[in-house]
Every structure is written in C-alpha cells, then in structure tokens.
Nucleic acid binder design. Structure first.
Lengths: 340, 340
DNA sequence: TATGATGATACAATCGTTTGCACACTGAAC
DNA sequence: GTTCAGTGTGCAAACGATTGTATCATCATA
C-alpha cells in the first residue's frame, strides 16, 4: 500500500500537520524536524495524494483540454497535435497536468465539456473552438478560467488566442495579386469555422483594394471534397478562358485534393493555376508541387493559450484578454508569376 | 459557488447519504424520495465532486497516458496522435478521462511517470514505450495496472499491445524478394527502438530463407538523417553496379529523405531503387512517388491498449496479456518489379 | 518570581463524497 | 403484546491531505 502522511508522521514521531508543513518548507518547522521528516518521507517513498490535496486546496494543477468534433476528426489533422504539443510544453514545465476530453459519437462536445467542468477535476479549461458550438451554456455558470484557441463568436467577453486571420486572408490574396493574378478563387469557406470567415474578409478586402470585383460564386465551400456532386461546380468554374489563375485554399489537404482534381483536367499547378494554402503540413511539404502555405504556428498557439490560462488561474488576469500569434507565409513551388 | 451534496440534501429535506444513494439508484431508497432528490439535484445543477468521490472510492476513472521523449519529439510524428485518437475513442465511450504526461527538457520521462503515478490521480497507466527507458523502477513498487504500447524489453512479465514486428519485417522483405529484388537495404535500424530490432530479425529471416547472404553494412542506422557525415556512408553504398535495388525503410519521413538524397545522385524511385516503407503517413501518401508503406494501425493499437487497461482496472485480467494488432501493407508506387 | 514574548509542535476542523451500521417504523405472526 | 422481518432513513467514520488556532516549553526581561 502507498504510504500516507500518517505513516510518515508515525515513523518520524511528529503529527501529520508537522509533516505537511515540513515538506512544504514552512518556516515554522525547526531545521532538525524538517530534515528528519524529509528523510523519512524519502525512505517511505511518500508522495502526497493530489486528490486529497486538491480537495482541500480547491485547486488541482490540472487543466482540461477540449478537442471538438470527436477525436475521430480532430486528431486526424496535424494542427491539433501541434497545439497539444505547445500546451504540453508549458504544462510539463509548470508541473501541470492535462486532462483530455473529446466529443464522440456517444458524447457530444457540449456534454464532454459539461462533464469536464462538472467533474471538479480541472482548475481551468482550454477550448479548441474551431467550430461554433454553444459552449457558453455549460460554462457561463461556473467561475472557471477558460481560454479558447481560435476566435470565438462573442470575442469581447472571452479570452482567446488566435492568428489574425483577416490579415492572413489579406496577405495570401495580396501575395497572388502581386504576382499578377487577378482571377483568384477562395476555396474552403465554411460559415461554421470562424477562421475561414475571417480569412474570407481579408480576401475580399485585398480584392477591393486592387479594384477587382468580387465574384460571389468564386467563394467555394470545402464540402466539395465530401460531396461528388459539388465537383461539377468546380468543373464548371475551371473551364473556359476566364477560369481562375490562382486559388487561396483553407487547408493543405484540400489543396492536395484540388491538385489531383486539376491534374485530371490537364491543368497543372503552378503552371496553369497558382495555389496558396494554409497550415503548412508535412503532406503539403512533400506533395508535388510542394505547397506555398501559411504556417499558423499551432504550437505557439498552444503555448500562448496555456500561459494565458495559467495567468488566469493565478488571478493575474482581470479583463478578457486576446493574444495574437503571428503567422508566416512559407514559400515553395505552387505559385508562379503571371506575365501578361 | 457550485452546489454540493449537502445543498441538495437540505433542499430535498433528507440526509446527504440519502442523496448519494438516491442518485446512484440504490434500491434501498423509496421511489418517492428518489424522484424528489433527483429533481432537486437537477434544479441545483449538482454534479458530484469527482475529487472527493475518487478519494473515498480509491478509483478515479482517469487513466494516465505517457508519451516518451518529450512532447517536442513525439507529437511531431503522426503515429502518436493516431494512438491517442484510439485511446480517446474508448475513453469517451466508457466515460473515462485521459491525463496526459510527457517528458520534456525540464522533466525526464521517468520523472514524468513517477509524477503521474505518485500523484494518485490515475487508476491505470498507458505507456508509449517506443524507447527503452527504465520505467520499471517507478512502476514496480506500485500495484498500478499498466499497459504498454510497443514491445517492451521483458515482455513476459508485462502487458502490452503491438504489431508482430518480426513478421512485418519479414513480410516487407519478402514482398521485395517476390518482385525479383535480391540486394535489399535495411534503413533506419536503431537498437534503442524495439520495433526496428524486431523488424530487422524478420528481414534477416526472409533473406536467409531466400538463401541470400546478409551484408551487415546494409543495415543502416537512421541517424544518417541527422548526421551529414553518415551520408558518405549512404553515398558509398549507392554507387557502383552492385548497389541495392530495394530498400526497407523504417519510416515514411526517412523514406522521403532518402528519395531526395537519391534524386540528387540521379537515382529514381521506383525505376532505379524500390522502396517499402513503414507508417503509412499522409506525407508518404502524397509525396512523389506515393509510398508503398506498412500501416501499423496506430489507432487500433490505442483502442486495444485502452480496452486491455480497462479490463485490468476492473480486475478481469490475471496474468500478463499480450495483444497483437494486425498490420497492412498498402501498395502504392514506390516499388517496381525487377526483370532480370 | 511573575510576565511576556517567541518559537515549535499538536489539535481539530475542513474539503465533498461514500458506505457500514444502527435505528425507527410498519405490519404480520405467534 | 411481544417478537420478527422487512423497509427506509440518518449517523458517523472514513478517504488523505491542509491550515487556523491553541498549547506548551523556553528564555529574556522587569
């Protein structure tokens, strides 16, 4: 059986309270007793039971990490593990633990969060809020520190870290404009994902600045990958002489799919169509051609979110705080300059 | 403040013990009281504090998940998130939580495990034991259920799930032999990783069966990627007419590196060199040429490990149990048939 | 010598649950 | 009118820590 504080107390011939204080280096304990207690604790391989400690301290040194949409979806994309890596770095450094939760078929996202918050296990919560789920409800009542990763709906009242996605949308579009492209398609818009909403705003701003009229049908949903009938839409868009010469795509996987689709129609990237992508994944790095892609720095997103959360737990944050993580456009071989 | 069992008791005009029993559907509680208590509990949004419950029940419904080598390394490879996905599926289904831990610069793997086990938070432990760390020490004393993912050193005394890596090594080599290759290089051997040790065994068996003499210098360490001087070794191996016509490579990333290296020497895959790889990653799927690669089914590895662990926690497992997860050779375009 | 300050330790309450046991009631059997 | 099941509820002791306060030496000071 594992040694308890009482065992240590008995062997060291002091009371449990003295053991507790000695091990926490409380100055009220004499040098002599302190060393004796610490020696005994080591001998018995005593580790304070965190369960008990957290109960009385009302603080667990555990943060909950919520991944949306079920593990099945989320872990499949390299973005999430990278975020987790960032969180883990800070956690291990600060001696915090991460309690993972994910929705699933048997457990909706909201239920999973409720579960996590209600359990009393966690002192704070990190929310991967890619999608707009009604998380406010289970959260509002609780006075639990929460940091979201990704821009939430009612931004001003919540804490979050994110890239400047409007800026990213602007930058990628501008990058193509600078290279002579005027007919630019926006691929992967999904109103449920704020990142794409924001990037679209930037895309539209850049076009407007360049004095180019926006073609509403050139903002294409990502669902064309799932749904083969939508391919007919793409098919239509990419035939004729006034087809797009460039594409801003919301994700490398989407981009790779597009490359394959285009190849089937004898259109090549970057000769016929230039492509700027997002997320800078390994797959995008190794596919042909290697993708010019925006690195959103998911790891840093995780680091910043965790740091902010810990500050909140320590009561160092008064008002809703937003942290912006810079992105980086990684140039590879999917964009060509248009001479006209 | 969050409602406690006492609040519910007061409002429902019963004792805390009755509340506890009513909410657990204990048959000793009358129908009338039960429904009243449950109504009140819902009204007050009462959730039992798991901390307190676990303390008295000595069971937390939390399993620890240990990733080796620091998050920095592990999460970088898609293998680990896939395992985590599998674990998460079972966990969410069984209403378990996962407590993640990872070594780091500031915290060695062994310390991290000690921390996890000592904390008293977890009822069981999942160990991603890719590498041979001396985990026995912090574990041996505890009567804590542990399942390892990956073949551990002293296999007979521990529980683990793994592929049959000897078989996988044999199968990949045989696959190349069947296609007329006789000069086969083994790339990525590392004595610290048991997977590669086992696969090498299979590789040697297959060669022996085919009556082909083993060339010891054709078993190459993975460190050639880190160390440029080792490239001179590869350089030497791949020049001359008796160079390898095929390679078994321990990982897609390694393979992609090799393809680049070979391209620099005007050798092409699969025309000049055939390549069978491991881990079936997205990058390997989208690189040129798309890799023929062994899918070790990391998700299933996670599922099986978690299921086994849960069985152990429930006391349903008496003796050290091993679970074997089948692998699958996914054929793509990195192997050609040798006509000679 | 009484008094007060100081320093070290122990006592006991607390955190929010669960659960073995005692208790009180009801109605039936003797 | 006892005794005896059987049923439903409450009491109190855990689980393993932390921490405010009381206690008790010890020693210096008046």
């Amino acid at each position: 059986m594992k040694a308890t504080i009482k065992d240590v107390a008995r062997v060291a011939r002091v009371s449990p309270s003295t053991v507790s204080r000695a091990l926490q280096n409380n100055p009220r304990i004499s040098q002599e007793v302190r060393t004796r207690v610490q020696r005994v604790a080591k001998e018995l391989d005593f580790h304070p039971n965190q369960m008990a400690r957290s109960l009385v301290r009302r603080h667990s040194h555990i943060v909950g990490v919520m991944f949306p949409g079920g593990t099945s979806i989320s872990m499949g994309h390299p973005f999430y593990p990278e975020v987790l890596r960032g969180i883990g770095q800070v956690a291990s450094q600060q001696r915090y633990h991460m309690l993972l939760s994910t929705g699933s078929e048997s457990l909706s996202d909201v239920e999973a969060v409720r579960d996590l918050v209600g359990s009393g296990y966690v002192s704070g919560l990190l929310l991967l809020a890619a999608q707009d789920s009604p998380m406010e409800e289970p959260l509002s009542a609780q006075a639990m520190p929460v940091v979201e990763i990704g821009h939430p709906l009612d931004a001003q009242h919540r804490c979050f870290v994110d890239n400047d996605n409007v800026m990213a949308g602007w930058r990628t579009t501008e990058y193509l404009l600078e290279r002579g492209h005027k007919r630019i398609l926006f691929l992967g818009y999904d109103a449920r994902f704020f990142v794409t909403v924001d990037r679209r705003k930037g895309y539209e701003q850049a076009l407007a600045q360049a004095g180019i009229a926006l073609e509403p049908e050139w903002v294409v949903s990502s669902r064309f990958m799932e749904n083969t009938t939508d391919n007919s839409l793409l098919e239509k868009l990419f035939q004729g002489e006034d087809r797009p010469t460039a594409v801003v795509s919301m994700d490398d996987t989407l981009s790779i799919g597009l490359i394959g689709f285009l190849r089937g129609r004898h259109l090549h990237v970057p000769e016929d169509v230039s492509l700027v992508s997002f997320n800078n994944t390994q797959a995008g790095q190794y596919c042909m051609p290697a993708l010019t892609s925006v690195d959103v720095d998911p790891c840093r997103l995780g680091v910043c979110a965790m740091q902010l959360l810990l500050d909140m737990i320590d009561g160092k944050v008064e008002s809703p705080t937003h942290v912006e993580v810079p992105f980086r456009l990684v140039e590879r071989h999917s964009v060509s300059v248009l001479h006209k």
